[in-house]
Amino acid sequence: MKRRNVPKPALGGAGEAGPGGTAGRPGRLQRHLLSGEFDELRDFPIFESNFVQVTQLGEVANKVTMGVAASSPALELPDLLLLAGPSKENGHLELFGLFPLQFVQLFVHDESRWQLKVKFCTGRAFYLQLRAPSETRDREFGQWVRLLYRLHFNSAQGAVPFTQEYSAPEDDEEEEEKEEEEEEIRLEWEEHQATEARLDPLASELWGL
């Protein structure tokens, strides 16, 4: 894979506007991946933001940094979700998991509260509220909304990434839908694999955010 030592400012997310960040500076997650412990992930272009995990009713739980990344410059959209948070030992950012976006759905849960819903194909779901300075919060959340539109449009899951269209039936029928979803996921993955080789590498320069 082509080395990309300097993340593109256009993909900056929290890197552009996150707490403590300056324009064009990589975000906390990107810096963590560049620190030398994750060679496999350090060259991924990442769009990331800082969040707090909240309950469905909005009660605050813990800090989470979420990013989406493209594992290959041949991709026109990100294909991985990265989750990180403060370590229990010293509070430094620690990568918790890396999840192919084929197996994750992202929704806008509550636009007025800058909340997203993250739902895994296993049925596990949680809610994240954007943590950003008030003057840049709307713009940063808007970038996530645009990204979610693109991800949903690109997938077979429908073009509108809002929980209102999805959550009511899915919460009650998660178990029944699980196998069906996994089969869909497998098919999408095969389709995605077939598409990858045809994509123009230049298209991955911007995710249209």
């Binding site: 991985l80 998991g97 890396l98 999840f99 192919p100 197996f103 895994f120 296993t122």
Partner: peptide
């Protein structure tokens, strides 16, 4: 335990022969 999808990470320091080693 939830089914793992993708990769989940853990880390811990151990001491081998007097050397601190981080297991990722």
């Amino acid at each position: 335990h939830d089914l793992t999808i993708g990769v989940e990470f853990g880390a811990r320091m151990v001491n081998i022969d007097g050397k601190q080693i981080k297991l990722q």
